[in-house]
Simulated assay, not measured.
Amino acid sequence: MFLENLGIDADDPIRRGRFWEAALGTTALTVEPDIYETRLDLDGDAYLDLCFARVPEHPTSPLRLHLDLRGGERQLEVAERLRGLGARDLDIGQGEVPWIVLGDVEGAALCVMEEREEYTDTGPLAALPLDVADPQREGDFWAWLTGWVETSGQAPRTLRHPSRRGPLLSLYPEPEPKRPGAKNPIHLDIRLEAGDDVEAITAEIAERGGRELHPGWGELPWRIYQDPSGNEFCLLPAPGAAS
C-alpha cells in the first residue's frame, strides 16, 4: 500500500482543481462537474494525486492538513503568481512569520514558504503539515501506513517518500483536539496493492490506535478510517479488486 491521494472537499471541483493545477504544474486526470483529479509526479513512477470532490456544503471545519508551497528565493514571485490565479492574502492570526499565508480560490489557507534546506527536491509542493495529538505515535502510524521514511524537518516528526523527492509529511502537535463529527476538509488516501489483505490491515490500524468509520454514506468502493488523532483517511482498493 502507498500514499496516493490528497482528498480535497470543494464547492466547485473544476474551479478549485484548475487553481491548484496551475499553482503546482500538475497534469489533469479527470475533469467532471463533481470531481477533478490532477497528478503531481514525484519521481519516476511515484506520484501524488489531488482529488477535488464536490460536497453539499462549504467546508467549515478547521484545517488540520494544509498545503505548503515552495517559495524560497522566489517566495514573493510565487505568492504574486498565486494572487494572479485567484488567491487572496489571509490573516489567520499568524503574526510575524517568514512564510506568506494566502487563501486559495475557496478561501482555504495555504502557505508560501521561505527557503529551507529540507525543501531540497520537493518540487512545487514543499510540505503537508498535519495536526496530530502525538507526533511520535502518529509518526510511526503514518510511516507504516504510507511506506514513507523519516527525514529531517522542523516538525517533531517528518516523513518523506523513499525516493527523497516530493513533499514532506510534517506532523505537528494539534492546537486543539479533533472536533467530534467534524470531517477534515483535506485528507489523505492510501491505495492498496495486489496481495494486500484489507482485513489484516484494518486489524493493525486498530492495534495502532486508529479505527474504521461507518458514516452511512452509502455503498462506496473504498473504506474510511481515522488515525489515532481522529484524522480521516481512506483505503482505496487495489486496481482491479473489489472493495
Rank of each mutant, 00 (worst) to 15 (best):
E80R: 13
L24A: 13
G95Y: 06
E232N: 12
D41K: 12
H187K: 09
G93R: 07
L3P: 01
D89K: 05
P13D: 03
L125M: 10
M1S: 13
I35Q: 13
V31Q: 10
E77F: 01
P185I: 04
T60K: 11
R208T: 05
A28L: 11
S170F: 00
P62G: 03
G107N: 11
L29F: 00
W142V: 08
T202D: 13
V132L: 06
A23V: 12
W142K: 07
W148I: 07
V112F: 04
G107S: 10
L65T: 14
R16Y: 00
E57S: 11
G107K: 11
V149L: 14
E199M: 11
L65Q: 11
E115W: 05
C234L: 10
L169H: 05
F141S: 09
Y172N: 13
I205M: 10
N184P: 02
H187N: 12
S229Y: 03
L128Y: 05
Y36T: 08
W222C: 02
S61A: 15
P13G: 06
G71P: 06
D43N: 12
A126D: 04
Q75F: 06
I14N: 04
R64G: 05
L69E: 04
F52K: 02
A23M: 11
M113T: 15
F2I: 12
A79L: 06
C51G: 00
E176Y: 09
R18E: 15
G218S: 09
R165T: 03
G209S: 09
A203Q: 13
H161I: 02
E57R: 12
P156V: 09
R179C: 01
L3D: 03
P175W: 04
P221E: 07
P239M: 07
H58P: 04
V112S: 03
R18A: 10
N231K: 09
C234S: 10
N231Y: 09
G93V: 06
L48S: 02
T146E: 08
R208S: 09
A194Y: 01
H58Q: 11
H214Y: 07
L145R: 08
P185Y: 02
F19H: 08
V149R: 14
S170M: 15
R164Y: 12
T30P: 00
L236P: 00
L76T: 13
T30E: 10
P221N: 13
T146Q: 08
I224N: 08
V31A: 05
T27P: 00
R54Q: 14
R81N: 08
P177F: 06
P180V: 04
I14G: 01
G103A: 14
V31C: 02
G7A: 13
Q154N: 12
P124T: 02
V31N: 03
S229M: 04
P62T: 03
R18I: 12
G107R: 11
G153L: 12
G107L: 10
E115Y: 09
L102E: 03
A109S: 13
R83C: 11
A46V: 00
T30S: 02
E174R: 05
A46P: 00
L168Y: 06
G166H: 06
R116I: 01
E77V: 09
E106T: 08
R211V: 01
A155K: 08
D49W: 01
R160T: 02
P162K: 05
L188E: 07
G84D: 09
V198L: 13
S152N: 12
P239T: 06
D131G: 00
